[in-house]
Design a protein around this nucleic acid. Sequence first.
DNA 1: GCGTGCCGTCGAAGCGCTTCGACTACACGC
DNA 2: GCGTGTAGTCGAAGCGCTTCGACGGCACGC
Lengths: 357, 357
Amino acid sequence: MSAPTMLEVAKKANVALSTVSYALNGTRPVSEETRLRIWQAMTELGYQPHALARGLASKRSRIIALLFPALPRGFGATELEFVTGAAEAAQGMGYHLVLWPMEIHAVGELQQLVRQSLVDGVLVMEVRLNDERIELLRQIGVPFSMIGRPAAVSDIGFVDIDFEQTTRDAVTYLVGLGHRQIAFLNHAEEAFTAGYGPSVRAAAGFNLVATSAGLTPISRFCGDSAMAGQDVFEDLIAAHPDVTALVTMNEPATFGVMQGASRRGWRIPDDLSIVSLVSSARVAEMTLPPLTAMTPQSAQLGRLGVEMLIEQLEDGNRELVQQLLPCRLVIRGSTGPSPDPATRPHQKSGSSRVATG
Amino acid sequence: MSAPTMLEVAKKANVALSTVSYALNGTRPVSEETRLRIWQAMTELGYQPHALARGLASKRSRIIALLFPALPRGFGATELEFVTGAAEAAQGMGYHLVLWPMEIHAVGELQQLVRQSLVDGVLVMEVRLNDERIELLRQIGVPFSMIGRPAAVSDIGFVDIDFEQTTRDAVTYLVGLGHRQIAFLNHAEEAFTAGYGPSVRAAAGFNLVATSAGLTPISRFCGDSAMAGQDVFEDLIAAHPDVTALVTMNEPATFGVMQGASRRGWRIPDDLSIVSLVSSARVAEMTLPPLTAMTPQSAQLGRLGVEMLIEQLEDGNRELVQQLLPCRLVIRGSTGPSPDPATRPHQKSGSSRVATG
DNA sequence: GCGTGCCGTCGAAGCGCTTCGACTACACGC
DNA sequence: GCGTGTAGTCGAAGCGCTTCGACGGCACGC
C-alpha cells in the first residue's frame, strides 16, 4: 500500500540497492541489460524516488525558494507571471519551488529558513536598489539569483526588465509617428526617491532618449490611482499644451488620463497618443481603445531566473549571467500620428471637476 | 562552517541526542533545567533543525503543495492573493508551500509528484465543477482541501467564495437604492456551459434573487473584453431601455460598459449604476468613477484553505470544514439612486460605432 | 518496606536514499 | 603471462533526525 522503496525495486530486479541508485542517476556505469531489468521493475511498481531521502543523502534537495515581499506595492498580473513562469521552469527541470513571502526587512526570518537546509538556492524577486536580503544571502553563502537588480550589480546573476531600453523604444516609436512633445508619467515621487528600480530606471531612460533626440524631457510623478492620473494630466496639459503623446509607467494613472482626455473632449489616439510601459495584455486590453503597450516577458523572466539559479547549482562553474530583457511593443489602439495641438478641443467638456493636484 | 546538527547541540548541553529532540518537539517530558540548557546551546549555535532529515525520520515533511492550472483563464490579482495568502498562512504554521502549476488534465504528472512523498497534503485551486484531479487525489489517499468546489460536494473540506450570496447582496443593495430593472452581465457563454463555477453560481444566484424580489431577471453573456462589454451593453440597452443598474461578473467587459455608457452620454452613477462582482480593489479603483464592487476576501480564502489542510494533517480527527465566504460590498462611485430612465440621453453621442454583437 | 507508576533520560534502530571502497571479471599491451 | 585498467556490481557506512524500549530514581499507598 505504501510507496515502494528502492530496496523493493532492487529485489524485484535481482540487483543490489546501490545498483538501482546508479541506474537511476547515472552515477556509475550500469550494463544495458541490468538497466533494463531495473527500469522494468520500477515501472511495474510505479516507483518514484523519495524526495526527502534523496535530498538528505545527497545534500541536494532539488528545492529552490522564491523570495518575494509579503505585501508588495502593486502586485499584479506581471508579478503573477513571474511566479508561474518560475514554477513551471523549476518543475520542468525536476525541481520544486517553494514560496517564501517575506517582508523585505525580515532578514532574521530569512536566515532561519535558509538554515533549515530545505532549499538549495533562492530566487529573489522585487529586488530593491539597496536590498538587505541580497547582502545576507551572499554572506551566508547560499546560491541565489535575482529578478531585478540592486544598484551596485556585482557578481550575482540576475535577469531584469530593461527599463531604459523599453522606455527608449516607446519614445522612438512615438517619434516615428511624428510626435515631438512627449511627456513621461511616472509612479509617485515617494517610490522614486525610495529607490524603486523600475521607476528610477525608466525615468533615466526617458531623459536620456528625449534629450538625445532633441526633445524637452517633460516628466511628472503621479500617485497610483485613476484620480491622480486625471489630475496630473490636467496639470500637465495646462503647463504643456502642446504635448501630443504620453509615455506612462503607472497603470491606474493611465486609466485616469484616458478618462481625463475623454472628459476634455479629446479622442485617443486622434488627439493624444499613449504608450503604457510594462503593461500586461490583460491590463492593456481593459481600456477603449486598448492601450498600445510595452509588454514585459514576465513568464520568460521567471523562467530565466530559475534556469540561471539551477545552472549555478548543478555546474560548479558559475558562468555569470546578467540579462536584461526589454519589453515588447504591442501596438493597439492608443497611438497614432501626431496631431496638430491647435486643432484639439481647448475646453474641458463634460464634468467640470477641477484638478486638485 | 556548515550548519550545526542536533548532535552538536546535545554535546554542548551535555545530554543525549534524543533528549534534544524531545525538548524541541515536546514529544516527551523534559525537566525545566535541561530544557533551558538545551535551548541555550541551540541559540548559541544558531541551530535550526534540518527540514529534510526531520521529514524523513518523522514521515511528515511539513510541506504542502498548491495545485493550480498552468495557464489559467483570467489569472489576476484575486488569484495571486489566494497564493500569497496561502503561502503566508503556511509559513505562519511552520509549513512550506510548494507550487505545482499543472494542466488540469495532467493527472499522471500529479500522481508522480505525489508519489515523491515530498508533500504531506495538497491544496487544489480553481476547482472545476467536474474535476479529475480531486478524483485522483482521493483515490491515492492524499490529504487535500480545495479553494473552490466541484459540483458534487462530498466529504472533502473546501473554502469558496459564496457567489450566490455575493450576487444576492449586490442585487439587494441595488434594490435598496430604488433600482427595479437590474441586468446581470456574465462571462462568455462558453465558460458557463463548460461549468465554470463562479459563472454558473453567480448566474443562479442572480436569477434566484431577482425572481424572488419580483424583478425580471435580465442576463447577458459577454466575452471577456472591453469591446465585447461595450457591444453587449448597447445590445442590452436596446432590448431593455429601462435598465438602470448592472451587476457584472466580468471585469474587462465592465470597463467596456463604462466606456459605452459614457459614449452614449450617460453618466455613472447618475444614469446607470454598476456593481462589479468579485473584483479586487486594485481593479475597482482603475475606473472613474471607481467601481462599487463586491470584493473577495482572497487572502483570507487562501489562508483558510491552508489552515483546513494542516488541521487535517495534524489532528487525525478530520472535522469537515466547508466554508463559503461572501464577498464584501465596497461602495465607491459607480452606484447611486435609480434614475428615471426617461430622463437619460437616448442617442449615442460621440462615436457612432455600431454594436456588432 | 516493597510493589507500582511515572518522570526524565539514554542508547540504538531506523527513515530511504547516495556514495565510497572493494571486489570480480575481462580486455589489453608487450 | 603478468601487471594495469576499466566496466559492472556489491555491501556498508552514513545523511540528521524521530521514536521505541529500557532503565534509574523518586513518590506514593498501605
